[in-house]
Nucleic acid binder design. Structure first.
Ligand SMILES: [Zn+2]
Ligand SMILES: [Zn+2]
Ligand SMILES: [Zn+2]
Ligand SMILES: [Zn+2]
Lengths: 132, 132
DNA sequence: ATAACAAACGTTATATTATAACACTATGAT
DNA sequence: ATCATAGTGTTATAATATAACGTTTGTTAT
C-alpha cells in the first residue's frame, strides 16, 4: 500500500529534485544542485537517498548508479522494479506491467530460494533513437 | 553461439581467478590477488573485465559491483542474464531458465522500445539461510 | 620480410561513487 | 523531564572506475 508519508527537510529537498528531473540523477549531481540549500556533504545526500528508496519513492538504477522517482504507487516499497534504458540517449523509463510483475514475483528458482525482491533492467534503443 | 576464443595473458589471468572463485569477486580484490603475477594497476583489471564481459565469459552483478563467471554457454554473449542473490550470505547464483529467458526476451515495452539485452537480479534468502 | 594496423600492455594520475565516525539537534513517547 | 529514535552537519577516507600517454605485441596485406 502506498502510504502518505512525511519526510525530513533534507529528504524532501532530495526527493523534490529527483521528481523534477527528466531523467536519472547521480548522487553528486544532486549534491551540486542543492548546495545553495545548505547541503554540503555526500553523506547528507546518501542518507536521504537511502530513506527515499526504503520508502519506495525513488529507485536506484544499478547499472548507472543513478536515481529516479517512482512512477507507480511507490512500487510496493521497491520490491519489484523494472526499467527500460536507452543505450543511446540514456533515457530511463520505469516499466509497470502487471503481468510481468506477477510473472517475476511468482518465479521460483529451482534451488529453493525464496525471493523478497527483484530488479530488472532492459537495455536497447528507445523509439526516438531507433529511427535516427 | 559459444565460440572457442583465446584470451590474452592478462585476460586469462583474470578469467582464471574469477572461474576459480566460489562467489562474485570485486575488481580490487582481483587486483590484490594477481599482483604476484605482475599486474599492478586497476586499469589492467578493468580492461580485462571489459573484454571478458564482452565475450560473455563473465557477468557483472550490478547491485554488488562484482564479477562472476558465466555458468551457461556464455549467455549468448551476455545478452540475457539473471541472478539470484542471497541477502544474508551474499551467495550469487546464475539462473538459467529457458522459459524465463524467452519470456523476457519476448517482452515488449508499450513505449515501443526494442530491447537488445536485459539483466535481472532477484534478492532473497537462499535455502541455507532460510532455515537458519 | 616488412610495413601498416589493431589490440593489448604498463604506468601515472585522477575522477567518481560511497561509507565511517563523531558530536550535535530535533522529535515524540512515557 | 527523561529517554529513545531519527535526523543533521562535518571531516575524513574508502572503494570503484576512467583518462591519457607512450610502448609492445600480434595480425594482416603486400
Ligand atoms: Zn516504482
Ligand atoms: Zn534513446
Ligand atoms: Zn551467463
Ligand atoms: Zn544465503
Amino acid at each position: 500500500m502506498a502510504q502518505t508519508q512525511t519526510f525530513s527537510k533534507n529528504q524532501q529537498i532530495v526527493l523534490d529534485i529527483i521528481e523534477k528531473a527528466k531523467g536519472p540523477l547521480k548522487a553528486y549531481s544532486i549534491l551540486f544542485n542543492v548546495q545553495k540549500k545548505g547541503i554540503n556533504a555526500p553523506q547528507q545526500i546518501y542518507r536521504a537517498l537511502d530513506k527515499l528508496i526504503e520508502a519506495g519513492k525513488i529507485h536506484k538504477i544499478e547499472s548507472k548508479n543513478a536515481f529516479v522517482a517512482c512512477k507507480n504507487s511507490n512500487c510496493e516499497v521497491s520490491k519489484a522494479t523494472a526499467f527500460s534504458i536507452c543505450e543511446s540517449c540514456e533515457i530511463v523509463d520505469e516499466i509497470s506491467d502487471t503481468k510481468l510483475s506477477k510473472y517475476l514475483s511468482k518465479f521460483n528458482h529451482k534451488k529453493g530460494m525464496k525471493f523478497r525482491r527483484f530488479n530488472l533492467e532492459f537495455f536497447g534503443l528507445c523509439k526516438k533513437c531507433k529511427t535516427k
